[in-house]
């Protein structure tokens, strides 16, 4: 389905319908966790979630009409940001905890068993608190997540870290349409125009934090790979390597 001309309410419905399920970890390790068991659980979850993320992306209006090259570029660029915003959304009602899966809920202190992990947990928990304070709505969340995917790689050619998109205009149209849907949703809140503008800015400013956390997380995952103590799954490796290649 094409996104051009799609009414904002329909965009919101499609985005909400595309949402992936909350998964189960199943391979529960015994506590207390070690660096190896913790990373084995987290990387296994990330690998499973990546498959659902690809299914989600294919349901975004306009995504499958992009060239395969552009689909790959966007997913490679944004995958950890998309995982992180989903994690924070799942955790919004549980202060101090991160809900990686229905049966994998971790608090900050548990992350200290992995070197360098507590710093990333702290950033994720702080940004989740910001989501909670802003009372982020499901409609706003689905827009932000789609914006993260489309924005992350859209202007990357400026930094020469990845190949340019074949059709950046098509991605920009998708981005504009989803931004319009977000603005439309906020406009129905009954707030003043000034408050609406402020909320749009507050929500979009969160994306800078998500990009920062993703960069930190990518470096951390790469260090885990280099230690060679936790076997990484093929799809996760492929996505991680894409960042190293760039």
């Amino acid at each position: 389905s094409s996104i051009a001309g799609m009414p904002p309410d329909q965009v919101l419905l499609v985005l909400q319908g595309a949402e992936p399920p909350i998964l189960c970890a199943r391979q529960k390790m015994s506590r207390p966790y070690t660096e190896v068991t913790m990373m084995a659980m987290l990387t296994s979850m990330a690998d499973k979630e990546l498959v659902h993320m690809i299914a989600w992306a294919k349901k975004l209006p306009g995504f499958v009409q992009l060239s395969l090259h552009d689909q790959v570029q966007l997913l490679e660029s944004a995958w950890l940001e998309v995982l992180m915003i989903g994690l924070m959304w799942r955790s919004i009602h549980c202060p101090g905890k991160l809900i990686f899966a229905q049966d994998l809920i971790l608090d900050r202190d548990e992350s200290t068993c992995v070197e360098g992990m507590a710093e990333i947990f702290d950033m994720l928990l702080a940004t989740t608190s910001r989501f909670r304070l802003l009372k982020l709505k499901p409609e706003e969340f689905v827009c932000l997540k789609a914006i993260v995917l489309l924005n992350s790689g859209a202007f990357a050619f400026c930094t020469s870290t990845m190949e340019p998109l074949h059709d950046s205009t098509a991605v920009q149209i998708m981005l504009d349409t989803i931004t319009d849907a977000l603005v439309h949703y906020i406009s129905q809140s009954g707030c003043t125009v000034q408050q609406q503008s402020r909320r749009q800015a507050q929500l979009l400013l969160l994306l800078t934090h998500i990009r920062h956390m993703s960069n930190k997380g990518m470096e951390h995952l790469y260090s885990i790979k280099c230690k060679n103590t936790v076997p990484l799954y093929d799809l996760l490796l492929e996505m991680l390597d894409a960042h190293r290649l760039h």
Binding site: K48, V51, H52, I54, A55, K58, L68, H69, Q71, V72, L75, E76, D234, L235, E238, M239, D241, A242, L245
Partner: peptide, 24 residues
Amino acid sequence: TSLKEKHKILHQLLQNSTSPVDLA
């Protein structure tokens, strides 16, 4: 290395008409 070779799994999951979840 061609793009296709570099991104084997991602390409397969994106290209196939079957849901990536079912494929995996």
